[in-house]
Design a protein around this nucleic acid. Structure first.
Lengths: 246, 246
DNA sequence: TATTATTGTCACAATTTGTTACAATAATAA
DNA sequence: TTATTATTGTAACAAATTGTGACAATAATA
């Protein structure tokens, strides 16, 4: 169970965290043929933002990202990759954050640590949509899935971060274990193909796709079969971690 | 001409720079069949380190990397890519740096900003070995090329950073304009092949390699030919920036 | 029991990659 | 001057991979 933080903790001057450095996570899910990401909605504003956080002084950078991911999804052991570090000056605009904090009744000077410039390390995570339980952070009142294909405007440079995450996802799709981590434990070949098509934004040939996936030798075919359609029942597959480690 | 910094500047408490954040650059060159990287050797110690630096408060992260690269090589407009951000706790070991500063007659408490924990953004650069003019930084007395195949021990986690840079280089070799940026303005197909073989650590077939490179349509064949060997003179090629932008 | 949609797999074509072969040629040796 | 040598540019063919369509199998529905 996650422990809710209290606004007082924001008032501390960043003690215990590395200054200047933040983490932003693009948390991908897949549901009903749509790629989705988790976004936070801030109280009394229209601002939407990527789940983020800061790095504790006694914490590895990658562990901080895992912590942020776990706090927002209630999930452990999720596929997580660092993909880029964003450090442009023009990403530093305290206006939205000041508005959000103001909506919480918090008014700080521009020297407050949260209103200073941050360099942000971007991570993307791949989660089973059906397993994640979105949890807002202490400044947000909602944490929900949004269709990647129809994103609302995001805070700061978060749109750019999402785009870069998606670019990375496409490039690494056939080099890493990306597809399988977005589906449930078992899935059909058609499920997998729909996912690949959605990520790549293009149709793939069914026959060649099946041949390619099976040739990777990381899929375990299960005896039992899905049923429910007016047609031949497809095999179910499970991703076999042990068969071909990355 | 680069302006030499004075040790007094180190004594300032990091004012003007983002705290906690550093940059390390793996600067690759290629000469006589060997991949090389630039290393700094610190005065009165045996420590070798990657060229690095810090990010000014009014400077883009990527610009800071470009600045570090320009300061060490005297070159502008070089191929430079961010590849990973290193933030493990165990990379923070002030012992070597304290020894180096002590060798300069500088003795600081553990609270000095240079002795605190840093998260470091890694960049790799590809430079024309014959054009770079290595320049030491203010704590080093030498800046020289070292064979990647025969590296001496490096400071902190710099060995790991180099390895990750090389891994990235290999993965991106046929996806980005990597090879061409390590050679002189003009080169033969054999030059290019030797470079690819060195980066990948394996032999390639001459015929297939030539066919592949020409099919990329980013090489411009020059009329004039190299001469000097007891055999047919090879064409010279030039990388054509405009033909197929990335 | 026939119809329908989808599945698993095969077969063949098209393309790409791996490999060998061979003529061309610039320097050197005879 | 001519033969030798090493390397180059390219063609030719083989092997492997990928693209594409076809077809029988089959689970629900009509």
């Amino acid at each position: 169970m996650r422990e809710r933080l209290h606004p007082e903790e924001i008032q501390a001057d960043g003690a215990g965290f590395l200054p200047s450095l933040a983490i932003d996570t693009v948390i991908f899910g897949f549901h009903e043929g749509q790629l989705k990401i988790l976004l936070l909605e801030y109280k009394n504003t229209n601002w939407l933002a990527l789940p983020g956080g800061f790095v504790r002084e006694t914490e590895n950078l990658n562990d901080a990202a895992r912590r942020v991911l776990a706090e927002r999804t209630s999930l452990q052991g999720i596929y997580l990759e660092q993909f880029y570090t964003f450090g442009d000056l023009d990403r530093y605009d305290p206006t939205p954050l000041r508005a959000i904090m103001s909506a919480h009744g918090l008014n700080y000077s521009d020297h407050h640590w949260l209103l200073r410039r941050f360099v942000s390390v971007g991570y993307y995570a791949l989660v089973d949509f059906t397993k994640a339980v979105p949890v807002p952070d202490l400044l947000a009142d909602r944490c929900d899935w949004y269709d990647l294909a129809n994103l609302p405007p995001l805070m700061q440079d978060h749109q750019k971060i999402v785009q870069k995450a998606l670019d990375t996802l496409r490039i690494e799709l056939d080099r890493k274990l990306i597809g399988f981590n977005l589906l449930s434990e078992t899935f059909t070949m058609a499920d997998l193909q729909r996912l690949y098509e959605t990520i790549l934004g293009q149709k793939l040939h069914r026959s060649g796709f099946q041949r390619k996936m099976l040739s990777l030798e990381i899929l375990e075919r299960l005896d039992k079969q899905y049923s429910g359609g007016a047609h031949k029942a497809p095999y179910l597959y499970r991703f076999a971690f042990d068969k071909k480690p990355e």
